[in-house]
Simulated scan of single mutants.
Amino acid sequence: MTVTAFNDADLTRLETLLTPLSASGSTMRPDEVQGFFAALSSGPDQVDADFWLPEVLGDAPAFENPEDEAELAALLQKLYDSIRAALAAGEELDLILYAEEDSGEEGEPDYWPWANAYLYALDLVDTDWFEVAEEDEGFESLMMPMLVLGGAFEDEDGGEDLLTFTDEEIDGYKEELSDALAAVYNYWRAKEQAPVTMRRDGDKVGRNDQCPCGSGKKYKACCGAN
C-alpha cells in the first residue's frame, strides 16, 4: 500500500483545526501528536485510531461542524500512516517542533512537548518496554534522548532531579534524537523476528527408545522420522 506523505499543507490545516483545541485543555498540539505517534509506531503493540484518537483529542469539546471533525480524523490518520511508513523505510522524520515559550517565533525549538508525548505513549500501551528489554543493557541508552528531552529524570514535585545534564549534553541529545528514533524502531523489529526457544516439558526421548505416541515402534522409526 502506498502511503501519501504528510505535507506542509496538511500540517497547516492540522494546526488550524487542532491548535485552538489545545490552547486550554488536554488536547495535544501537532508536535505532541507526532511524538506520540512516533512511539506508537515504533513499539511492539498494534494500535489503531480507536486507541489513539481519544488520547489526541483529550477533553476537546464536541465539534460544531461534523465535516471539520472528519477532516481532523483523516489528517491524523494520514500523519500516523506517514510516520509508520517513514520509520519502516528508515527515513528521518521531519520533526514538528515549535519555539520555546517566551522565546518568540525565531526562538530555540522546544523538544520537551514532543519527547514527553513520546514517553506518554509508553504509559498507555500494553507492553512495558523497559520490562521486556530488561535483559538488553543497551536499550536504555537507545532511549536516552527521549528520556532526557521528555523530562523523565525531572522531579515533578519541584525537588531535586534524579539526574541533571549540562546544556552541551542536552544539545547532544537533541542532535541524536532522529537516530535514536530509528534505533528504537529497529530494536523492536529485531525483537519481533528473534527466534523463540522451545523448551521440552518432559524428558528427552532417545532415537532408539520406544516412541511416546504408543505405537510400539522405536522413536527413530516413528515420530522421530519426521
Rank of each mutant, 00 (worst) to 15 (best):
P113D: 06
W112S: 13
W114I: 00
A88P: 04
P113F: 00
F63H: 05
E105W: 14
A85S: 13
E69C: 05
A115R: 01
L79E: 12
L95H: 04
Y120N: 11
E106D: 15
S82C: 12
D102M: 13
L93T: 03
E92M: 15
L97T: 02
W52S: 06
W52K: 01
D48I: 05
E71M: 10
P54S: 02
G58M: 07
D94G: 09
A89G: 08
A49N: 08
Y80C: 15
D50N: 12
Q46H: 15
L119H: 01
E105A: 09
A62T: 13
L119A: 10
Y111H: 13
A73Y: 11
D102C: 06
L53F: 15
G107D: 04
L95Q: 06
I83W: 00
A60H: 11
A49P: 07
N65E: 05
E91Q: 15
K78G: 09
V47P: 05
V56M: 05
L57G: 03
E91K: 14
A70M: 07
G107M: 06
R84K: 14
E92K: 14
G90P: 00
A99E: 14
L72D: 00
E69W: 00
G58W: 15
P66I: 07
A89W: 12
A99I: 06
L97M: 11
D81I: 12
D50Q: 12
L79A: 01
A99L: 08
V56E: 04
L53Q: 12
D94C: 07
A62Y: 07
D110V: 03
L122E: 08
L122Q: 13
E92V: 09
E55K: 11
E92R: 14
D102H: 10
E71C: 07
L76Y: 01
V47I: 13
A121W: 02
E67K: 11
A89D: 08
P109M: 01
D81G: 13
L79R: 03
S82D: 15
A121K: 00
L95E: 05
A73P: 12
Y111A: 05
S82Q: 08
N65S: 09
D94P: 07
L93D: 03
E100Y: 10
P109D: 02
E91V: 09
D94Q: 12
N65R: 08
A62V: 05
A89E: 10
P54E: 00
Y80L: 03
N116C: 12
A74C: 00
L95P: 06
I96K: 02
Y98Q: 09
G90L: 03
D59I: 03
L53H: 10
E55I: 10
E106G: 07
W112T: 14
D45I: 00
E100S: 13
I96C: 04
